[in-house]
Design a protein around this nucleic acid. Sequence first.
DNA 1: CGCTATCATGACAGCGCTACCATTCTGGAC
DNA 2: GTCCAGAATGGTAGCGCTGTCATGATAGCG
Lengths: 349, 349
Amino acid sequence: MSKDSPNADSPTTARQRRSSDQVTLSQVAQVAGVSPITASRALNYPEKVSDSARRSVLQAVESLGYVPNLVAGSLASSRSRLIAVIVPSLINSVFVEVIKGLQETLEAEGYQILLGNTDYDLDREYQLVRTFLGWSCSALVTAGLRHNTACHTLLANWDHPIMEVMELGQGMDLNVGLDHVAAGRCMANHLFDKGYRHIVYVGARLAQDYRASMRFDGHKEVLKEKGIDAPLLELDTLGSLQAGAEGLAQVLAQYPHTQAIHFANDDLAAGALLAAQRQGLNVPGDIAIAGFNGLPLGQHVTPQLTTILSPREEMGRLAAKELIRRLSGKNVYRRQHDVGFTLQIGGST
Amino acid sequence: MSKDSPNADSPTTARQRRSSDQVTLSQVAQVAGVSPITASRALNYPEKVSDSARRSVLQAVESLGYVPNLVAGSLASSRSRLIAVIVPSLINSVFVEVIKGLQETLEAEGYQILLGNTDYDLDREYQLVRTFLGWSCSALVTAGLRHNTACHTLLANWDHPIMEVMELGQGMDLNVGLDHVAAGRCMANHLFDKGYRHIVYVGARLAQDYRASMRFDGHKEVLKEKGIDAPLLELDTLGSLQAGAEGLAQVLAQYPHTQAIHFANDDLAAGALLAAQRQGLNVPGDIAIAGFNGLPLGQHVTPQLTTILSPREEMGRLAAKELIRRLSGKNVYRRQHDVGFTLQIGGST
DNA sequence: CGCTATCATGACAGCGCTACCATTCTGGAC
DNA sequence: GTCCAGAATGGTAGCGCTGTCATGATAGCG
């Protein structure tokens, strides 16, 4: 602005690629009266330069309105402060809460989130992973331990932290989650202890939401041990209040003797509970209802929903903390973290 | 792999920076028997190279397991296929639904989302914008039309599309949203028409959630026109079922003659409705309740919640489509899109 | 006072890719 | 056969930044 023309004194270069009014670090350095590399250090490693240098650089940054080009920085350093987060769904608030936990912890440390959504499709996951590796992300967070082989190979050869969340198990690298089979067992035991003997498990798209199917496995194990049948009703719409209402109707039609329904999640359970109310059914007198997740909704309906509380935001925060610890070079970490769960007994069972 | 050592024939370079086992485009080109630039074109502009060249490049990519370095590509082309999305909150499902709409449309076009959360803090927003501009994002989506001056200046000088969503108005560039004042008016009119005269508006943190306060403005206007008082109760916890229950209690205590409560959103309204049920209050007989958003929850409680349906995913999809259109160079677009809203009358009023 | 350890700074090269221009090669019009 | 349009390909030179090493300045030691 003040100078006549900034490229008048660069006679050698025959052509400019892009005039690109963007302020560069070199310009900042020039204004500050230091070399570009010192300007770089002043911004990235402030403790490595003298006070005076740092001050003049910061002042130049301010006056020029310099915005660092992170793309160039990442290319040069092959570090990006970008964390890839891949989830199967954004409709399901559970994943959003995990993202929230990740987000607040990672942003505080100056990391940004690159968000990907697989829609429960492992091939899509592979594509996303490829793209994200191309961004030389510092780490990758993915929901679940199951991946297709291409994805597995790609990640196995990747030399950055990988964090698999939601479920507990032998992962590729780091893992923060809970034991879904145990959660399923826990609820089944509760229902049995309450005296229910005709119990139906209702889930939605279990092939995709395989964690729900792991809970069913636990549920089935327990009932089998007790010598009881464990019928399963699978809905083919994704979990929602509406689907829960339909689930209730189908159970009543197909299994009229049912005393209790163990829903794969709280959305379904709450939907069924509200539908039961609309139909004048007594919960738990006519039918008991249990869910999974501990969504706020379940705590506000009457009767309060019996559910299993999973610490979702906490899972995100813990995962983020472990990643940060790992990324700061500390090797002291546990590969696996069990965040546990809590049976929350309401009036619905 | 097949060759002895790829860097044996680069004798001039004294030192290697990082050995970086990463496969580069040059290696792909070498294997494919073409120049690097042709390999680049084969991947980015397939129609610009011959069939044979394209085939051999793709085959080389496959066999080497090449993953393009998007950071380098972005630096060279100053395009990134990254879209910054900045929202004030992830707890509020409304923003998540907009993100979902954006996400599914943008991912289909090969764009990735860089997600930022301001926690309703405009200074934080500015920081995020700075960071995201540093990634040379192709475009930026932000919730709302209000920004601090630094942010405004920064964005005004930025030469990429900016999309402001959620509320309708004179934005910086593109805008997709709805008229919140009109929505507030709409609901107030409905309540008046239903015969209610003692109506309290209940919101949470209106200074932050200023869109809720715009709805209150509309609400107030209408009641003023009718010559009625428009008391406001502001909660200082964020919108949630719990807060709604508290809001109900406070209204009953402070304004015992209240006939109807106009809540700033469905979370609050549903929380109040469920709380009313727990307390044996008749809705709408003892107290009428209305919300805003049209969350599924409101449609499943009994009585069904009267609310205003806002097309949130649709807003995200439309915003994404407009951005894509703009990014593909088409200049034919409307700067402003009103997605409208629908009054949904349930049994709660 | 000379020697080495430490700090602050700078020169250089290069991260992996693509924009730009130049070149070659084809095929058709005349 | 000449000329030119157009397609396919390649060479060169960066994009803006930071890792690596080298240098100069300062301090610490016997």
